[in-house]
Write a protein that binds this DNA or RNA. Structure first.
Lengths: 347, 347
DNA sequence: GCCGGCGTTTACCACGTGGCAGAGAAAGTT
DNA sequence: AACTTTCTCTGCCACGTGGTAAACGCCGGC
């Protein structure tokens, strides 16, 4: 390790110049003669010099890293999004520090505060679950934040926060309307939040309600299923609750708040011999890779993840660089991808 | 941001002591009076002081971060493993920098070299794909490395590299033997490496061969399918190649090198009306969460991921702290989880 | 009452870098 | 030829921290 601790000082000695001249060459200071520049660059090459990021960070106050706080990486949607954010960030020469919050308020708070003001990151892209709008505004990090996903209701006069995401209400309405158009009449919603603080779930439930209302279908509270979480097991559990209903009260269509719930639900229904889509049509949300390959393949709302990632990174870096101080609330595109789980009429 | 740049200096002023005394309190220097310690801790609390990691890093040469280099986060196995590694590391008070290599040699090399000797990380847990043993040994980072997954053949006299993983050959043999015991006789292997440099694929193929040999079943080269990658789409493509065979030559059992291949394969076979396991029994590898919930659920080799993560972190930190200099090659446990995809005899 | 020893607190330095401005040389101007 | 301007290069400083060792004060012992 010591063998490779090449500093600007070493380079300077090798090139026969002052240490500061090496620094000047590196930072593209304009007034450096070509002769010296070449000599320094040659020495850098020969010694394999690489800047010490800790020193740069200490001197400049910038870490060259941005944080990405997501609930869980083993939820495919976040894994796919993370990949895209990392790629977008690396294209711009920065590093991403990935933080898993596990939906835990304390961890979210810690990341919003930049890990206790340790200035590990220059900015944060955050997919909040537990944090309220107030938590986010009262953050102490002092760095720019871009929120992903559901719109958190923040007062407009609080600067420093951008938002990127799709219109969850419209997307959920589209999904539900699709089920109604098959046609299905007993359309359930799986994924209301049992802990009552998931804004995402509220928005998707609102879209579901709007679609029912527009179609003149009465909302049946017994067809709105709450969940403890948004994993396959929670979907399976909801499926078992559906099966506990008297047969004539069971839904013939289900809109799930995300794809994992839908997968678990389909699995539970399948166990009892239910056929999808013949007995129950299912729509998911997120369009993870698995939705294409599952049996049956899953109709799903597909947010434009690449657009989300690209926009979030661009907005954040604009702020980090101070080139844009305005607050942005960017609504990204989505589409409904129709697959086997809603193909065909009720048998 | 400037509002929260609380330094030891600020704390010292507040507590009416020297800056160094604050440092001593923080680093638990024994000879500090209780009176002063309390005063300093109170000041730290009041001002919300948090150490500046850049400065610590610069001074100590330690970043407090370890790297975790995985091919892709949106491959569930790595996402699940990443989660466990992060949790094991955080329990020990360190931070994980997650690096996606995308199986790219250059990126792997960069991470092995600590991002150009920038000393961003104190150690690395690496799941290599493209790198050969030589690449790993010739790394310039100068920090400890723990390799995950397949055993890379490194000369034993090269210190500084630990290895953690299951016995891939034995695991593959177990999986194949299970298929043979159903009984199935035309057992295929899907996942030989087309690029010929995946050591993991070689090992799993070797286990497959051993099982066939032990059972006295001749190896049929036309039943060994190569893939370009290890995603669902590659499994689906292999499935289409299987279906291109004359019906009597098609396998009645398939061992896939990982679960994603198996999912893609099952999907492709399902498209043509094949029943799993009645027509073809399928075994995967990794036991990702999805294997439990897919239709049919997937029999899979289940490496003890928690054990892998825990062991890897423990070994790495032992080296980082200099408390253990010996080379370790830890073989972790695995089991075969039997599910629907191999339940029952050929119809 | 002076001294040695121990417990406690402090001063100084270095880690490697970028901002700032000065020093020296070359070129242009009067 | 002397002066100003421009271009190159350099030295000094600070970022916030931890290691080293010195300074300080208190106590007990002779």
């Amino acid at each position: 390790m010591s063998a490779l601790a090449v500093t600007q000082e070493d380079v300077a000695r090798r090139a026969g110049v002052a240490r500061k001249t090496v620094s000047n060459v590196i930072s593209d200071y304009p007034h450096v003669s070509d002769r010296i520049r070449k000599r320094v660059l040659a020495a850098i090459e020969e010694l394999g010099y690489q800047p010490n990021r800790a020193a740069q960070n200490l001197r400049t106050g910038r870490s060259g890293m941005i944080g990405l706080a997501v609930p869980e990486l083993d939820v495919s949607y976040f894994a796919e999004l993370t990949r895209l954010v990392v790629q977008a960030t690396e294209r711009r020469g920065l590093t991403v520090l990935i933080i898993q919050t596990f939906g835990d308020l304390i961890r979210e708070h810690a990341s919003l505060n930049g890990f206790g003001h340790q200035r590990l990151i220059d900015g944060l892209i955050c997919s909040p679950i537990a944090s309220s709008g107030d938590d986010i505004l009262n953050r102490g990090g002092g760095f720019p934040v871009v929120l992903l996903g559901e719109q958190v209701s923040v007062a407009p006069d609080h600067a420093g926060i951008d938002h990127v995401g799709i219109d969850n209400v419209a997307a959920a309405r589209t999904a539900t309307e699709h089920l109604l158009s098959l046609p299905r009449r007993r359309v359930a919603f799986v994924g209301a939040s049992r802990s009552t603080d998931s804004h995402m779930a509220d928005l998707r439930l609102a879209g579901y309600r709007q679609a029912l209302a527009s179609a003149g279908v009465p909302l049946r509270p017994e067809l709105v299923f709450s969940v403890n979480g948004y994993h396959r097991r929670d979907g399976a559990e909801a499926g078992r609750r559906i099966l506990a209903l008297p047969p004539e009260e069971r839904p013939d269509g289900v809109f799930c708040a995300n794809d994992l719930l839908a997968q678990g639900l389909m699995r539970a229904l399948h166990d009892t011999g239910y056929r999808i889509p013949h007995d129950v049509a299912v729509v998911g949300f997120d369009d993870i890779d698995e939705a294409t390959y599952s049996i049956p393949s899953l109709t799903s709302v597909s947010p434009d993840k690449a657009q989300i990632a690209e926009t979030a990174v661009a907005l954040l870096l604009d702020r980090v660089n101070g080139s844009d101080e305005a607050d942005h609330d960017t609504v990204t595109d989505f589409s409904l991808v129709v697959r086997e789980s809603t193909a065909g009429p009720r048998r």
